[in-house]
Design a binder for these strands. Structure first.
Length: 320
DNA sequence: ATTACATTTCCTGATT
DNA sequence: CAATCAGGAAATGTAA
């Protein structure tokens, strides 16, 4: 019945916390974070906690949720999965998942589980971001990138924004799996740090070498670009007007809009709305204006990944 | 909690 | 006339 301490929660989320001279955050201060002990009586509450904490019953509830939603015929399932609990479930890879749940439901469940894991990590991030500072008696902290980078605060290569923002920046490094909490002297500026001077000074956000796993391109212009450069997946939706210059045209505008909507889980997407987003790209020079020609656009200097050379040499696109 | 960013939504008016 | 293009303004969702 003991409440989990912060480090155990981080462990559940596959995160590690390095501490320098700080006590762990008292368990009673962690009430804002739902745990297995606080949500027992709600239905579907498994959604609130880490899949690593699910019991066999919660796994069952999760599965039946999916069976219901996908109208899958559950009678064809073997009953092997009845005894799988959270930790074991999380240990399964896609193949094992498919072996147990079949080729239709398996991959579905696998993807769903990944989403729940990610969601939980996000939840912890948000929790810590809003609570850690207050929890430890008025102290302020800086989240640092890694234990070994001693004076990283003064390293402009590493920290592209003012050091006041090191707290927030450090959180960005959570994707690397580690975070260090240590005493800081400054007041944390509130809110998201503004985007810094793009251009010559390098940044973890725009340097693909340092930003090892940059977030996968989810932007509209990248979506459009990917349709264009994958003719096999492109069922006559778009075509190049001038491959070299990056001029392209929508052939089935509404169909593309529907696909975009599908990607963003938005069934009401239309070309009308998609095109408004496209027009916003002119100012940012991701697209260039092509006037007089309906449904025709042109990639601008702030877009990338569409030139034949770029594709060949495997250079990743810069996401803005 | 608070902010930045990238759309999304809606709309009025102009063109094709 | 229908489909697009142009942007302004405000709303939204998500991530930092």
């Amino acid at each position: 019945m003991s409440s989990p301490c912060l480090s155990s929660i981080l462990t559940n989320a596959n995160l590690t916390m390095y501490q320098t001279g700080l006590p762990d955050i008292p368990p009673q201060q962690l009430h804002a974070l739902p745990t297995i002990h606080t949500l027992e009586n709600r239905s579907h509450w498994y959604k609130q906690i880490s899949p690593h904490q699910w019991t066999a019953e919660h796994v069952l509830e999760w599965i039946s949720d999916h069976v219901e939603r996908t109208k899958f015929d559950a009678s064809t399932l073997s009953l092997d999965f009845c005894s799988i609990d959270g930790p074991n479930l999380c240990r399964m890879n896609q193949e094992e998942m498919t072996a147990v749940f079949g080729p239709q439901l398996g991959p579905h469940l696998y993807q769903s589980l990944e989403e729940y894991k990610t969601k939980y990590v996000q939840r912890i991030k948000t929790f810590l971001f809003s609570n850690v500072y207050d929890v430890c008696s008025g102290g302020t902290f800086n989240f640092m990138s890694s234990p070994e980078s001693g004076s990283s605060e003064s390293d402009p290569e590493f920290y592209p924004v003012s050091s006041e923002y090191s707290g927030t920046l450090g959180l960005a490094f959570w994707s690397y799996g580690t975070v260090e909490v240590r005493h800081g002297k400054r007041i944390r500026p509130r809110g998201r740090p503004p985007k810094v001077n793009r251009g010559h000074s390098s940044s973890i956000y725009d340097n693909p070498k340092k930003n090892k796993h940059a977030p996968r391109g989810t932007h509209l212009w990248e979506f459009i670009r990917d349709i264009l450069i994958h003719p096999e997946k492109n069922q006559g939706l778009m075509k190049w007007e001038d491959r070299r210059e990056g001029v392209f045209k929508f052939l089935k505008s509404e169909a593309v809009a529907q696909m975009w909507g599908q990607k963003k889980k938005n069934t009401s997407m239309t070309y009308e709305k998609l095109s408004r987003a496209m027009r916003y790209y002119y100012k940012r020079e991701i697209l260039e204006r092509v006037d007089g020609r309906r449904l025709v656009y042109k990639f601008g200097k702030n877009s990338s990944g569409w030139k034949t050379e770029e594709i060949g040499s495997g250079i990743g696109g810069v996401s803005l």
